[in-house]
Design a protein around this nucleic acid. Structure first.
Lengths: 291, 291
DNA sequence: CGTCATTACGGAATGCGTAATGATA
DNA sequence: TATCATTACGCATTCCGTAATGACG
C-alpha cells in the first residue's frame, strides 16, 4: 500500500516538474522525495513520471493518477474537518420523534428554534406516540422525543417544553356550549364520552381519570389520537377532553369549552432524551436551549 | 497525517465492532490495531469509537468519518488500477487532428476502427491543417494527426492511410463535362482556375504544380480548403483540382472529371505521430493497426 | 474468573538527512 | 562543468509481535 505522504510528494513533483523545488515545497530534501516517488510507482505498478536527469514529465498514466491523487488528498484534508464538525455538533443528524398532538402547538416554534441553533444539522422527524419514542431513545434509533410523562428518570432526562389546560370538546350547537361558563363535572355526567385509550394514550387517560369524576358507562369510544377524538366530536358522537392547543387545529363543527377547578395547566409536553446519548448535535442543542 | 492502514483498521473495527475480530480480518494482532485507532483519533482530533473494554461503538463523528474512510479506501484501491489501465492503453485520451478534406473519405472508417481497437479510450477530435497538426504533435498537444506530407521523418513517424487520384471539379453543364473522356492539360489551358494556397495548402499546391502545366494567369482565386474550392466551383467561378474523395461530399452543381496521364494515385493521406510520443493508447492503436 | 482492550518492552524495518555518485547538456 | 536525480550510509523513529496489565461483567 502506498502512503498519503507519497501522494503529496507525487502531486508536488507533478506540479513543479522538478524534484528539487517540490522537495523544498514539502520542507524536505530531494533524496527521500525521490525514494517516495519510486516506492509509489512500485506499488502502483506503473511509471508515473519520466525523468531523464534533465527533464521531468508526466506519463499518461501519471496524468490520470494525478487527478485521483488530488481527489484523495482533498478528501484526506476534509474528512477530519467533517468529523470535527460532527463532534462539535455543528453538523450531523438529529432524529426527533413527536406526538401528533405536539404538532398542533409547540413543534413548529421548536423546529424554528432548532434551525436557528444548529442550522447545519439534518433533522429527521417521525411521528410516534410517547411509548415508541422511549423505545427509540433507548435503542439509539432516536435522539430526541417530544412526548409526555411518565418515563424512567434514570434512563431519560427531560425538559418541560409546554404546559396547557384541558378543555372539553363538544359539537357546534351543543347544549353545554350555551352555558357560557366553565363546565363542571355535573354538566357532563350524562354526556356520551370519547375517551383516551388507557394503553396507547396512557398519559391522557390517567390525567382525565385523576382530575375528573367519570361515569365509565358514558364512554362510547376509546381512541389513541387527539385528532381522531376531535373528528368524532365533529361527527357528534360525543364529547372529549383534549388539550387546549387542539383548538389551534381549527376543525369545523367543534367548540372547546373551559373546565372548572383545574389546578394550573395539567397537560405537560416534554423534550425527552436518553442520558446515554452521545450525539453532539443533541448536546449542543440542549446547551443552547437551557440558556 | 494519518495512514491508509489506519483507515483500513478503523473501517474493520467499525464494521466488526470488535478489535479482536477486526485484527484477525486484517491479519495482525490486536495491540497494533489498538494503537492505530488511537493514532488515527489523535490526528483526526476526535473520538471515533467509544470502547468500554466490553463494547465498541461508533460515535456520531466516527459514523461520519467511516463514510469518508470508505470512500477514501475505494479510491485508493481504484486509482492504481485506473493508472494501470491507462498505462496499458486500455483507457485514456487520444487527441486526433485531421484535415477537413480527410473527413470526406477516411476519417469515418478510421474512427470506427479506432473505436473497435481501443473502445475505452476517449477520442478528442480537432480539425486543423497539416502544419498545425505537426506543431501540436511536436508540443505534445496532439497524439495523432491525419494529414499530408511533407514532414520531418526524424521527428515524426507515419503510415499511409489512403491514396487517391486528383480530379477536375467543374460546374454542372460545363463544356468540359460534355467531352466524356479524360481531361488533358490543353483542355483547361484557357479555364479560370481556383488554386490551392501555396502556404496553407502547400501539399496540394506543390502536387498540382508538379503534375500539371498551369498558366498562372488563369488563377482567379487562391484558397486553403477543399470545401471552399468546391463551393466556388459550384458558384461557377472556375474549375479546381481536388482529390477524388471530394465527390463523396455530394455538393450540388459540381461535376468531377478524371484527368489523363496520372501516375498511380498521387494524393496521399497519412496518419502521423511523434516518435517521442508516450501515449500508451497511441502505442496500442498503432500496434493493432499494423497487424 | 473470563473476555477483551490497553500498556510495556524488545527487535526489526522504515525513513529521514548528509554525502557521494552518475548522467545529461 | 553545472545541474539535478539517484544511490550509499548512519542515525532516529516507527511499528510490529509477545507478554503483562487492567477493567468490566
Amino acid at each position: 500500500m502506498f502512503t498519503i505522504e507519497q501522494l503529496a510528494g507525487f502531486v508536488a513533483v507533478a506540479e513543479e516538474l522538478h524534484f528539487g523545488r517540490a522537495a523544498e515545497r514539502l520542507n524536505m530534501t530531494q533524496p527521500p522525495l525521490s525514494r517516495q516517488i519510486q516506492k509509489l510507482e512500485k506499488t502502483v505498478g506503473v511509471e508515473l513520471l519520466t525523468r531523464n536527469n534533465r527533464k521531468v514529465e508526466l506519463t499518461s498514466a501519471g496524468a490520470g493518477f494525478l487527478e485521483d491523487a488530488r481527489r484523495l488528498l482533498t478528501l484526506v484534508q476534509r474528512a477530519p474537518l467533517a468529523a470535527q464538525r460532527v463532534a462539535a455538533g455543528h453538523t450531523g443528524l438529529l432524529r426527533i420523534g413527536f406526538t401528533a398532538a405536539s404538532s398542533f402547538s409547540i413543534l413548529g416554534p421548536l423546529l424554528e428554534e432548532i434551525a436557528e441553533t444548529i442550522p447545519d444539522v439534518d433533522i429527521d422527524l417521525r411521528e410516534m406516540v410517547t411509548g415508541e419514542q422511549l423505545a427509540g431513545l433507548g435503542s439509539g434509533e432516536l435522539d430526541l422525543g417530544i412526548g409526555r410523562p411518565p418515563f424512567d428518570k434514570d434512563l431519560f432526562a427531560s425538559r418541560l417544553l409546554y404546559r396547557e389546560g384541558l378543555v372539553l370538546a363538544v359539537p357546534d350547537g351543543h347544549r353545554l356550549a350555551q352555558l357560557h361558563r366553565d363546565i363542571s363535572p355535573t354538566d357532563f355526567k350524562d354526556e356520551p364520552i370519547i375517551m383516551h385509550s388507557p394503553t396507547e394514550a396512557r398519559y391522557f387517560y390517567d390525567l382525565v381519570v385523576k382530575m375528573l369524576p367519570l361515569h365509565h358507562g358514558n364512554v362510547v369510544h376509546t381512541v389513541s389520537q387527539i385528532l381522531t377524538m376531535v373528528c368524532l366530536v365533529a361527527a357528534k358522537r360525543g364529547v372529549a377532553f383534549v388539550p387546549q392547543s387542539t383548538a389551534l387545529l381549527g376543525v369545523a363543527g367543534v367548540r372547546f369549552l373551559p373546565l372548572e377547578s383545574q389546578q394550573g395547566d395539567p397537560v405537560e409536553l416534554h423534550a425527552i432524551w436518553s442520558r446515554s446519548s452521545t450525539n453532539p448535535a443533541l448536546t449542543r442543542l440542549l446547551e443552547s436551549l437551557s440558556m
